[in-house]
Write a protein that binds this DNA or RNA. Sequence first.
DNA 1: CCAATAAGTGTTTTT
DNA 2: CACTTATTGG
Length: 719
Amino acid sequence: MPQSIFYERDLNSAQLEAVYYTNSPLLVLAGAGSGKTRVITYKIAYLINECGYSPENMFAVTFTNKASIEMRERVNLLLGEKVDVWVKTFHSSAARLLRMWGRGLNVEPDFSIIDQQDQHALVRKIVTGMNIDTETYRPEKYVYLINRAKDQLLSAEAAESENFSTDFYFNDVYKRYEEILAKEHVLDFGDLIFRLTRGFQENREVLDRVRERFRYVLVDEFQDTNHAQYVLVKQLTDSHGNVCAVGDDDQSIYGFRGARVENILNYAKEYRNCRIIKLEENYRSYQNILTASSKLIDNNSERLGKTLFTKKGEGEKLVFCRTDSDYDEARFIAGTVRDLVMGGEYEYRDIAVFYRMNAQSRVFESVFNQDRIPYTIVGGLRFFEREEIKDILAYVRLAINPMDEMALERIANRPPRGIGRKTVARLVESYLGSGHSILDVGEDLDIAASRKKLVLQFVAFIDELREMINGQDPPSLLRYLYEKTGYLDWLKRERRDEKVRNLEELYNAVDEFHRNNPSSPINDFVEEVSLNQGARDDEFKNNRVHLITLHNAKGLEFPVVFMAGMEEGIFPHYLSGEALQDQQEERRLCYVGMTRAMVRLYFTAARRRLLFGRTVERDVSTFLSEIPKELVVERSYGFNATGYGSSYQTRFSPLTDRGKVKVVERDISGIEVGTKVVHRDFGRGTVRSLENEIAEIGFDDGTIMKFMLKYTPLEIEGK
DNA sequence: CCAATAAGTGTTTTT
DNA sequence: CACTTATTGG
């Protein structure tokens, strides 16, 4: 029984119009914090409850996994049950459709998906193989160009005839790259969209079937679509025009991966009768934050132009603090976080620190650890990008797709089993090279007998794994894989404790996947992971400060936001390019960051910063000079400042100095090595060592910290 | 033929 | 700093 939804109560008039309007294609220009997710979710509910669409007719597409998870949750909440609405990222929808239709869309149904790391390794191999100098002809440049070509729906042949790149070797590299991918049944991220649009073009019946199913399409963050994605949306909708795109040109921050803001403009032109609705009331931030961000973004030209307003009051002034070093910057933020939380008004989870580069998170990690401030890093070195995880998954990949040479090369000798580079090269040459899979390797293999035995053993194991995929449940398969390969033992022998823990965590993830999807084969897990869907979703459950890149922060909001590293060269980043387009994209990124803040917004900049092993001096970011002075108060921190400064350590480190923490000695009986515990702020973990009532605890997310048990808010799990 | 060690080099943002 | 390549020793 669908619960009743009070559209008039929950939505303002512009939002309401956007939800109710169904007569033609709709473009919603939604300013930051103007309730765009609300519009999309209510519109889905409205279409289902009032317009006769069924849930499986709906297709809502987003860019990030985070956004899709959140939207799916909100749709389910609104409709009162788990419904079969497709809410997915572009890439995972494309992967799913390609798998569903397989050869109907001219792809091999067993294809593997490679990420940028794999792409890079492959291109490097190609370039080396061509005997070109990798210094002057850099693999990362070719990866970039290939990806951009695919965003433009340009095959290797088309790229050549259209003179896509003037690089001397580009066309050769791209062609060779495509040959290898085709031979190995491998697709990269760009292919997922490219091959789907091409498949639709070549097989109209399939496209018609898909259109019959998806009768209404909603696109979130439309300003981030690239050409290929734009074409895909058109293919799906131009027959019926049931499409609603939501976006904000001021928040376009993915130009570097082919996103085109112009799509927003073209959309209105190309879809005749397109209706445009602007959402301009901001529900998130106080006026000062809104004014400051508006003034900043005013410096960009070529905007569609929206005027955001809020009914909230002025609110707090923004704060700017210049520190001597990056460490002081982190200490200032840590101290302020502590003050805010001690003040009782905010919790750790209300606070976020934004930065331009992942590398900046290190200092925060170190200082926050010292100061016992619980934090979580969003993005960064992702769990599924770690070496050991990719190794194990490569075994599964190879078992699923025995043509996958990249997977083979990755794990043939991990753990070391006497199958080195040369031997692998020979295998590749005589089998994969001639269209056979690794499973075809037999006695006729032309290498020394001792080595041949090793290879045949390895092949037999992969074959065995392949059989298990259908016969065994994923967790058992994984456990068997750990043991039979000796991978886990190898790591233990090498004392790579963290990697061992990560493999245990991988097992847990597979186990959880299996519980949630009892009938799904491990293939589905691998696919989720390949598309980075497997991101742990418990991030928000724990009460922690969020450390997050500006790009990852899009779509989120926090009462308190720190924007760190506001220094020329870092933000705007010195590699972002001189072109006006690039500068403006950096400014939009700054705008995105600022508009995440609800109540308090802090900027920090360090005079000196240790970057890549070198100390560099930097000026304050020009972006700060674009914000009206009267909205900002300056705070100082450092040797000459009062209050904080170099005396910080002695003043702050014992918690009791602050006078606000009651010290109660805690009962520590029952805690020993191996005990599973729950920390008030840090969540679940296991005691790794215990000495003089000081315990070292390894938390589930991999962080390790030491605590004096008497003073630590710790419970034994389940007690 | 393979693994461990030393020297050298280029550093964004993400599906 | 982290990651790749060159060298040496097993």
